[in-house]
Design a protein around this nucleic acid. Sequence first.
RNA 1: GGCGGCGUAGCUCAGCGGUAGAGCAGGGGAAUCAUAAUCCCUUGGUCGGCGGUUCAAAUCCGUCCGCCGCUACCA
Length: 511
Amino acid sequence: MKPKYYITTPIYYVNGAPHIGHAYTSIAADVMARFKRLDGYDVFFLTGTDEHGQKVEQAAAAAGISPQAFTDKISADFKTMADAMAISYDDYIRTTEDRHKASTTELWKRIEKSGDLYLGHYEGWYAVRDEAFYDESELTKKPDGTFMAPSGAPVEWVREPSYFFKLSAFQDRLLKLYEENPDFIAPTSRRNEVMSFVRGGLLDLSVSRTTFNWGIPVPDAPGHVMYVWLDALNNYVTGCGFPDETASRWKYWPADVHFVGKDIIRFHAVYWPAFLMSAGLPLPKRVTSNGWWVVDGEKMSKSLGNVIEPRKLMETFGLDQIRYFLMREKPFGADGSISHQAIISRMNVELANDLGNLAQRSLSMVARNCGGALPASGPRTDDDTALLSSAAALPDLVRAHMERQTFHDALEEIWKVVRAANGYIDRQAPWALNKTDKVRMAHVLRVLADTVRVVATLLQPVMPGSMAKMLDQLGVPADARDFAALSKPLPDGTPLPAPQGVFPRYVEPAA
RNA sequence: GGCGGCGUAGCUCAGCGGUAGAGCAGGGGAAUCAUAAUCCCUUGGUCGGCGGUUCAAAUCCGUCCGCCGCUACCA
């Protein structure tokens, strides 16, 4: 039986259109999911939308439609986006679904039963627009005497009854979790921040609200709805069929990895495990967080007019090219910059010149000089062995990087082999052998075909469409494209279709 | 303020105790199978400053300068 692997993206808050940040996290999670499937795992990959909260309620009112109609529309937009980016999710969850309400109600009851909830009241300066409370020290006084949040939003003093979660009681258990599981939070810099935060002491968490209705009702507490994070985080458990622990999907819980943006690491690495501990449910194995993309050193913002839209990028450069760029250009956990020029450079230098051209020059010689059939292997020279060995070592190297989400390093390892193959073809010069030693030429071309096959197989998670084309051209059957199949050589004489360029060079349109 | 991180070639970064590295960009050459793609060679750095430990320091310690992150209920 295949080992299971459960992977999630955040569920995205439906207060705006999908942007590059959403695309990035989802693509990374998708790369991971596809990699695990090819590596022999029974993968469950969940994504979806987070649809409750006061802001949604108000935005819907402003739009003159019901909250449900409002979220239906935006959730559909996110789903369309996920499909357009080839996100291979197995389920798409929405927090407004009945299954999630049932699941979260049960989670609440379990936490309550553990004695970790109590009724108190919350008061403070509240900004409706930010859906957040602020400490008085954070506020600035305006000329008219009213106060303003750091975001510029107006605040008002509110006092409301609220249920609290005894987060303060979980400090030691959380620290123990981090210490015993050094891989629980990635990257390390975030782990240090989280540990430092928890060491500093934890306050109880307000987990219900009475000032709005668009949420899951607290059981037996009229007027209270659950506060957003308890509701939102629980989607990961809902997706596995909770509270039906006999559901076929329940085997997937706990998650093997939650992919999140660095802004929500604390919710996933502190609150979420505490909720689960209280409810007596197993904890996720890992929370891995990604950094931001900036444009020319500036954070993207509408006012600066430098917002990069994922749809536009895909239209201009192509989906696989963008997926490749995002995984290749910077370390996953770190911030990095994106620009038109940088995309073109990766695309033309690495995809078109290095890899696309390697496949094209190798396969066109097979087509022309080997009767369009895969040549047989021959006696290996040292040069042959060096290249084939580096290709054979690739799956383990890449796997190790994938486990740590060091995608850019995984791709660099693959590119070392691509560059080595270009060096090999120049040294062996099969075009010269064509005139002097056709037998050796055929053997050289087979070494190249085998090397490109390994590379293309390993790149499928990042560029599924393009690599499918490349593997077609290499004569690899559709059922022999997982990593295990690499140990089985392709049959000699496999007929190959006429090669066609997989990665065209990007040429700037004439102005 | 407290805690943590970073500062290495023009650019992005790796190295983290033993004679400075990669990719891109720049320069020269080779080849001509291929998407004018490829390959080889090469220019270029007092490894932020100053002290210290050591036979030996980008690499350990101290200090200074400059950037950045976290410091609670915001996706």
